[in-house]
Design a binder for these strands. Structure first.
Length: 848
DNA sequence: CAGTGAGCGAGCTTCCGCTTGACTT
């Protein structure tokens, strides 16, 4: 009897083969195999023209979805169909979650098997788990499939109904969705907080103290003055920068802090209280997708995308378990392996007295276990034979997993209060010590730190043994100034953490959410931080005002609750979708109404959380953000510079822009001979320099673009003149006596002679290039063009395989041709610099 | 080429969640 087993991921096949009977054929669906049509092109002909065709869902007939096979999936289906013909039964072994159940159902719909169909589920690929699964087949759970379909349709209805509203009201190509719009709003809200933030300054004192007859100096900070608490950061209102409860605290400024210091210099210092307490710490749970992305971002500086790429490689090569999971559960095998590793590495005393498992409670959709080293023996990072990113990430996963089975860390905290009395005033200082009584899991893993040894030291803070009533000696006191800081912008790590916490998005999508919001122009990455754009503000404002559900993370949790009901058979999909989409309060009616009511001009106007904009209005427009102000009946408008972020905006800065616009461009200097003013301006094609003003008799002043990498602010008269000089004569060609020039064209800097152009190399500068170099480039070009077709360079025969190796130029850039294989050249290579050695290396990499 | 923000209008843009390898010069 032959069985066809279908799983989701091809990488599972190899392992699964070990535990299934030999006559079983295993293949994979590679994820979903059918979906709603993505665009008009994918909609089947017979539905075109229907009002709902673009949605791919028949909103007029029970929300019947149209399913199509995406382009790339046809091949998979063909192969599966062929294999099914030779099988006596079909076993569907897709993941045990909502999406997996749906994939199984789509498979039966598409393959139309006439042999028995069985549904098989397992959570780990071990012998026992597979045996167990083979003995407990079940049927496809149609309720669960319905829940997935409802989820899919809700997302489609929301996304494809609301996005077009944004195209009409704000800008074409924008998008809205249950997940992305919430993510964008998080960032916009944080940016608003930053705009409203008013910083505050306060002072305290730091005293350097030591015991008598002991040289060790420790610091203590002033906390109370005559029994009243000293103001610190949390006492200030974020939006006003003022104290929340001024009567409850003492606020020191520059002057009063210095005075107090002088006063206390003659004081008596005495320990008034010593408190000790011990605390135990538990290790963090094993990694799930979101925590792995966060920690890799913090410790290794990886983006979410990079982390997932590296994890995928580790998974494929059998180093770790599946990397897209929301369960921190460890299998019995994993716990054993981790405990063995702890014993080996750190000894019995570091082992927790019993197996520890965090994933016991039910996660949202538990199809996989935690991300951990694969197998029943955890290879040590050093012996795994990994390099680079893969080593770093495996090391992180290994340590985190091991730590879960390690003993608790025990810390001892000492809090000491010291009183200083002078001139009838009592100042209270505090200091604290921290000692690791037993490091426990700290030995392997400290969250947020990449070096456990260094982190261990940071965890400790030494304090000499002090007794109540003991006198101490003061060595110096200094006033310290502090400033309150605005809330930090999101990073990839903190955004993923927030999304995960609110149940928005799935492990397989965290990384792509970040790309989506960037691609739509809602967010720009600035180093590690994610900065929302002005467009993000406009879109979020529109959604908050008119379609509040969509930007509320509760929408997802409410949806999940309904989907759970559908999955339990307590709610009908059609009822749920009708309620959401149809009727007076439904989405359709709401969007239709807003299409009439929202004024595009008003939608593009930003309602920034700034007080008194002094009549200045901020808009997003076709060419980016701009401002408008009415002055003396005249409307002045000007762009906001590209580099500005929303939270950079202050009324003062906007006034400056308006003033600059009123005064017109300022020249950077004058032409040394003619005396004409020189301007650096910004145009449609980027920054440029201009000689002279635009007047009636000088309609086309001389202009020249800045070269790549030049900064407008750094251009002086000398540089401007050299730019205006282009194309620049370099001298005469020794053979033809014709002039050779250097200039900049559409495809970059070039030299030209007698109608023949040659591009400059990256290392050449068009401002400095000399005649000799130009002749050299022209000569190379001449040789090249005499050669046939698109060959840039012949490298000769491959020393091992004998076939010819050439560097070619193609439609998508330069590539290496080797027999029938083509390898495109990585961006950082100059085709001219490619040698046989480099080519061989690239060929070898490709073969791998 | 060169600071804009008005309007004309065919056909297009867009969602979330599973999953990798196949492109083309």
């Amino acid at each position: 009897m032959k069985s066809l087993v279908i799983v989701e991921s091809p990488t599972k096949i190899k392992t699964l083969k070990k535990y299934l009977p030999a006559e079983y054929v295993i293949d994979s669906s590679m994820g979903h195999i059918r979906d709603l049509p993505a665009n008009a092109k994918e909609v089947p002909k017979k539905f075109k023209g229907e009002e709902w065709a673009n949605l791919g869902v028949n909103t007029e007939k029970d929300f019947e979805p149209i399913y199509v096979i995406p382009r790339g999936k046809k091949k998979v289906i063909k192969r599966l169909k062929k294999e099914l013909k030779n099988s006596d039964e079909l076993i569907l072994a897709t993941d045990e979650d909502r999406e997996g159940e749906a994939i199984s159902w789509h498979l039966t719909e598409l393959l139309k098997p006439d042999v028995p169909v069985k549904r098989m589920v397992f959570r780990e690929i071990t012998e026992e788990a597979i045996k167990e699964a083979l003995n407990h087949f079940r049927d496809i759970d149609m309720n669960l499939v319905n829940a997935q379909e409802a989820r899919r349709i809700i997302d489609r209805l929301a996304g494809y109904t609301i996005s077009p509203l944004l195209w009409k009201k704000i800008a074409p190509g924008l998008s809205a969705g249950r997940v992305q719009s919430v993510a964008v709003r998080f960032m916009v809200e944080r940016e608003r907080e930053r705009m409203k933030f008013r910083s505050a300054r306060y002072w305290d004192l730091k005293a350097q103290l030591h015991k008598e007859n002991d040289e060790y100096i420790f610091d203590a900070d002033l906390t109370h003055l005559d029994g009243k608490r000293l103001a610190s950061g949390k006492d200030f209102d974020e939006h006003t920068g003022k104290l929340k409860k001024p009567k409850k605290v003492v606020l020191l400024d520059d002057k009063s802090a210095s005075e107090l210091r002088d006063n206390l210099d003659k004081a008596e210092w005495k320990v008034s209280e010593v408190k000790k307490n011990r605390k135990k710490r538990n290790p963090s749970p094993a990694f799930i997708t979101s925590t792995l992305q966060q920690e890799a971002n913090r410790k290794l500086n990886f983006s979410a995308k990079r982390t997932m790429g590296v994890a995928q490689k580790l998974y494929e090569n059998g180093y770790i378990t599946y990397m897209r999971t929301d369960s921190a559960r460890l299998s019995g095998q994993a716990i054993n392996a981790a405990r063995n590793a702890v014993k080996d590495e750190y000894g019995e005393e570091y082992l927790f007295d019993r197996p520890r498992n965090y994933g016991g409670q039910k996660a949202a959709q538990e199809a996989h276990e935690a991300i951990r080293p694969a197998g029943s023996y955890f290879r040590k990072p050093e012996e795994a034979g990994l390099r680079g990113d893969q080593f770093k990430l495996y090391d992180l996963i290994w340590k985190r997993t091991i730590a879960t089975q390690m003993a608790k860390a025990e810390l001892e905290f000492t809090n000491v209060t010291i009183e200083a009395k002078a001139n009838g005033k009592v100042a209270e200082f505090r200091t604290s010590g921290k000692r690791i009584v037993f490091p426990g899991f700290f030995r392997a893993y400290v969250e947020g730190s990449d070096d456990p040894d260094a982190a261990l030291e940071n965890q400790e803070k030494f304090l000499p043994e002090l007794k109540e009533g003991e006198e101490v000696v003061e060595e110096g006191i200094e006033p310290i100034s502090h400033e309150t800081k605005p809330p930090a912008r999101y990073t990839e790590a903190t955004l993923v953490k927030e999304l995960e916490k609110r149940g928005v998005g799935r492990p397989s999508t965290y990384a792509s959410i970040i790309s989506t919001v960037q691609n739509r122009g809602y967010v720009e990455a600035e180093g590690k931080t994610l900065v929302p754009t002005f467009t993000a503000f406009a879109v979020t404002e529109l959604l908050e005002k008119n379609l509040h559900d969509l930007v509320d993370s509760d929408f997802t949790s409410e949806m999940e609750a309904k989907l759970d009901k559908i999955a339990r058979g307590e709610l009908n999909t059609n009822d749920y979708l009708s309620e959401y989409y149809k009727g007076e309060k439904g989405l359709k009616a709401k969007v239709d109404e807003q299409e009439d009511e929202i004024d595009p001009k008003e939608a593009r106007h930003l309602d920034l959380p700034l007080e008194n904009l002094n009549g200045i209005k901020v808009f997003v427009g076709r060419y980016g953000p701009y401002i408008k102000k009415e002055m003396n009946g005249e409307e002045l408008s000007t762009s906001i510079p590209d580099s500005w972020k929303p939270s950079d905006i202050t009324v003062e800065k906007l006034e400056e822009l308006i003033k600059a616009e009123q005064e017109g461009p300022k020249s950077i200097g004058e032409h040394p001979e003619t005396g004409d003013p020189i301007f650096v301006l910004n145009g449609r094609y980027g920054p440029y320099v201009q000689l002279g003003e635009v007047t009636e008799d000088n309609k086309k002043p001389e202009r020249a673009s800045l070269l790549k990498g030049m900064k407008p602010g750094e251009v002086d008269v000398d540089l401007a003149l050299r730019l205006l000089e282009l194309p620049r004569p370099l001298g005469k060609h020794p053979e033809t006596d014709k002039v050779v020039r250097a200039g900049v064209g559409r495809y970059g800097p070039f030299v030209v002679h007698d109608g023949t152009f040659a591009s400059l190399k990256k290392s050449d500068s068009v401002l400095d290039v000399e005649l000799d170099r130009a002749l050299e480039l022209l000569e190379q070009k001449k040789n090249k063009s005499s050669r046939k077709s698109n060959v840039i360079k012949e490298l000769g025969d491959h020393p091992e395989e004998g076939k010819k190796v050439r560097v070619m130029t193609g439609r998508y850039g330069p590539y290496i041709k080797f027999g029938k294989t083509n390898i495109s050249l990585p961006d950082d290579f100059d085709p001219e610099d490619v040698t046989m050695d480099i080519a061989m290396q690239l060929i070898a990499e490709k073969a791998k």
